[in-house]
Amino acid sequence: MDNKKLAVIFPGMGYHSDKPLLYFSKRIARENSYEIIEVNYKFPHKAREIMNDKIRMQEAFETAADQIKEVLGNISFEDYSDVIFIGKSIGTALAAHFDNELQVGARHLVFTPVPQTFDIIRKNAGVVFHGLDDPWCPNDVAEAKCKELELTLYTVDKANHSLETKHVATDIRNLQDIMQKAEQFLLQG
């Protein structure tokens, strides 16, 4: 192991790696000598069609997992001194699933998790960023599960599932703070 580092990006349903949270965290990882792998998947439904529908949510998860399996199954994770999974929304649950299934032991940078993420993610696996106006994950769930699982929780006031508010200037300040915290976490590896 030559101190090689790997960051795997797990996007959300409508939140791809060219959007701010994933785009900038990917750039920070690259600047800090991480090899980047982005997994991509296509879903049978749009995000708004599966909200609060457990069956469709499970179908979306399984569809994405099948598409990811081929990419991640070919990676020798043991060749890396540090592996970080960077996920957004359903991507956070997929990251936790593959961390367990492939026994990676990855560190997790979790942007706006879905509640199912907390059923899968390992104890003390990383940091969670959660918007206090996120309709996908109730605040009490995020707070209780992060405490139970010893995950560091950062909340963003009045922020939605994209960690955005109704004010651009506020979003820019928040994004800077989020990325500083993400980089601090990344540098711990």
Rank of each mutant, 00 (worst) to 15 (best):
G126H: 11
A95M: 07
V156C: 08
E148V: 01
N174P: 05
I86K: 01
K145T: 04
P135L: 14
K69E: 15
N139C: 12
F85E: 12
L153F: 08
A106H: 12
K123S: 14
I75D: 01
Y154L: 03
F111Y: 06
L153E: 08
V104P: 02
D82I: 01
N74G: 08
K166E: 07
L102S: 01
H97R: 13
I75E: 03
S76N: 14
G126D: 05
D133N: 09
A93G: 11
N174G: 04
S89P: 02
Y154V: 03
A96F: 12
V71D: 12
E70A: 11
P115L: 04
A93H: 04
A95T: 04
V110G: 00
I90Y: 01
F98T: 03
D66Q: 07
A142P: 05
I75R: 01
V168E: 15
G131I: 08
L109N: 00
R107C: 05
E143F: 10
F118K: 04
A106D: 10
P135I: 12
V168N: 14
D134H: 05
E164L: 03
S162I: 07
H130R: 09
V104S: 11
N100L: 12
G91Q: 08
Q103I: 13
T112M: 00
I90A: 02
P113A: 15
E164D: 07
L163F: 00
A106E: 14
E164K: 00
I75L: 04
E150I: 08
T152V: 10
N74K: 11
D134V: 00
D119T: 01
A95K: 07
G73E: 06
I84F: 06
T155P: 07
D171K: 01
L175K: 00
V71I: 15
K145A: 15
C137L: 15
E143G: 07
